Simulated assay, not measured.
Amino acid sequence: MLLALQLGQSAGAQETQVWIGTGQILSGQGQGATVQLVLETGGGRIWSQSGPALDAPFSGEQISVTSSDGTWQIQPQGDQLVVTFYRGEQIIRWQLRPVGKVPTSSSPLPPASWRGETPQPLALPKRELVLPVLNLLRHP
C-alpha cells in the first residue's frame, strides 16, 4: 500500500497553501462590516477563491498588484498574510492564516475564476471506519 502511494505522486508535484481570514471594511461603502477572504498560493502565484478577483505572481514577499477589481497589497508577517484591498473609496484589511496544503499536479489548472466557474469548497479526503458487527442478540 505504501509503495502504491509513493508511485502515485509525481516528482513535479507541488502543494497549494490555502489562506483564510476575516477582515474589516475600514472605509467606504459598508464601513465597519466584516468580510471573509480565501486566497491560495502555489507554483509562484497567488489567487483568490472568494472575494474580489486576484491572480498574480507571488514569491512569498510583499507585493502590490492591481486587478480588475482594485489594488491589493499583500505583506507576509510571520505565519500570516496581511492583505489590504483598495477599491475606490473602499479599503478592506484582512489577516489571513494558513489552513492547510492541498497537493496539486505539476501542471495545475488555472483558478476557477479564470475558467468562468463558481469556486467550490475545499474537499477534504474521506476516511472510512469499518467496525465488526458483534452478535448482540444471544438466545439462552
Rank of each mutant, 00 (worst) to 15 (best):
M1P: 00
L2P: 00
L5T: 11
L7W: 09
G8E: 10
Q9W: 02
Q9S: 07
A11Y: 04
G12N: 08
Q14E: 12
Q14M: 11
W19G: 03
I20T: 05
G21H: 06
T22D: 12
T22W: 01
Q24G: 02
Q24H: 05
I25C: 03
I25T: 12
L26G: 02
L26I: 15
G28H: 12
Q31M: 11
T34I: 01
V38K: 14
T41S: 15
G42S: 04
G42R: 04
G43Q: 06
G44Q: 07
Q49I: 00
Q49K: 15
Q49F: 03
S50D: 12
P52R: 10
P52Q: 08
A53F: 12
D55K: 08
A56V: 00
P57G: 12
E61Y: 08
E61M: 06
Q62T: 15
I63M: 11
V65T: 04
V65L: 03
T66F: 01
S67F: 00
S67A: 09
S68L: 08
S68W: 00
D69S: 13
D69G: 06
G70C: 11
T71H: 07
Q73S: 14
I74S: 05
I74A: 07
Q75M: 11
P76I: 02
Q77K: 09
D79Q: 15
Q80K: 15
L81S: 02
V82W: 05
V82R: 06
T84R: 15
T84W: 01
T84M: 11
F85C: 03
F85I: 03
R87G: 04
E89P: 13
Q90F: 04
I92R: 02
R93K: 15
W94D: 01
Q95G: 07
V99F: 14
K101H: 10
K101S: 14
V102M: 07
T104P: 01
S105M: 05
S105K: 04
L109G: 08
P110V: 07
P111D: 07
S113Q: 13
R115I: 05
R115L: 15
E117D: 14
P121R: 03
P121M: 09
A123S: 12
P125V: 09
K126Y: 13
V130E: 06
P132V: 12
V133Q: 12
V133N: 08
L134D: 10
L134G: 09
H139F: 04
